[in-house]
Write a protein that binds this DNA or RNA. Structure first.
Length: 258
DNA sequence: ATGGCCATCGCGGATGGA
């Protein structure tokens, strides 16, 4: 079973690329972020023809997330219960049956803009809200994947220029505190369970030939719960779509479970 | 190098992203 996450930076623009990618990578589940469209515009038919059921949680202009799966997702929940939020950032659902079922949480974490800003404070509150809810969610669903655009790097290995970007957004101690607090709930960064290419990133700035020069960050993650950890056999960042014309600035990440 | 790019809304240029 394969589960993937991809920030597509506008599904309207990227739909052909998502369909191409699914044809080449027939994963079982794909969560999408930054749809930037309302639910009435969501391309349910195109995904159905590709063999995917879709649950979406859209928003005009900003944010928006979706959960695609080959089999229907059950008990779908939108956003973080207990955390009041007017932005569409989280969609969760249970995919599969019995012992093979997995609770999938697809999330688009706030950007935060700049340390000290109002948006940064919102990011901190959101991270706390996510953690409080996820603690309970893990009790109810021991087999859980938290995947998406976290907008946080774990450490220097995830940063193309650790010195130049020290204490900058995505790299601050405060953000990493919250990321490690999620890990402390009983989650593992599936990427680091395996040897990875040097300077593995999942996002590259559109400006200044960021991708060609591999000036990027690893901010898209798939965290696996303790119950699922023994079943993880691979975690790969697929840079192929970033080489397309008009690419998303993010690459998909794929985890394989036995 | 003061910034470079991309998407949205909407028709100019501000805002957000990361």
């Amino acid at each position: 079973m394969q589960y993937a996450t991809w920030n597509v930076n506008s599904l309207s623009v990227r739909l052909p690329q998502v369909l191409d990618w699914l044809a080449a990578n027939p994963v079982d589940v794909l969560v999408l972020q930054e749809l930037k469209m309302t639910d009435d515009k969501f391309p349910f038919d195109a995904f159905a023809q590709a063999g995917y059921q879709a649950q979406c949680f859209g928003q005009k202009t900003y944010n928006g997330v979706a959960l695609l799966s080959r089999t229907p997702a059950a008990d779908v929940v939108k956003n973080i219960p207990g955390f009041d939020d007017d932005m569409a950032r989280v969609i969760s659902g249970t995919v599969g049956d019995g012992e093979q079922s997995v609770r999938v949480v697809g999330a688009y974490f706030p950007n935060g803009q700049e340390p000290g800003s109002e948006k940064f404070e919102y990011k901190m509150e959101w991270l706390k809200g996510l953690r409080l809810w996820l603690k309970e969610e893990l009790v109810n669903h021991p087999r859980l994947l938290l995947m998406g655009d976290f907008n946080i790097t774990f450490d220097d290995l995830d940063v193309w220029d650790p010195e130049g970007l020290r204490d900058q957004i995505h790299c601050t101690d405060e953000e990493r505190y919250h990321l490690n607090a999620l890990i402390a709930l009983g989650l593992t960064d599936s990427h680091r369970m395996f040897s990875q290419p040097a300077k593995s990133f999942s996002w590259w700035d559109y400006r200044d030939a960021g991708f060609r020069r591999n000036r990027g960050l690893r901010i898209d993650h798939i965290l696996v719960s303790n119950a699922l950890k023994p079943r993880v056999t691979a975690c790969v960042i697929d840079k192929t779509p970033r080489k397309n014309e008009r690419p998303s600035d993010h690459a998909p990440v794929v985890v394989t479970l036995s």
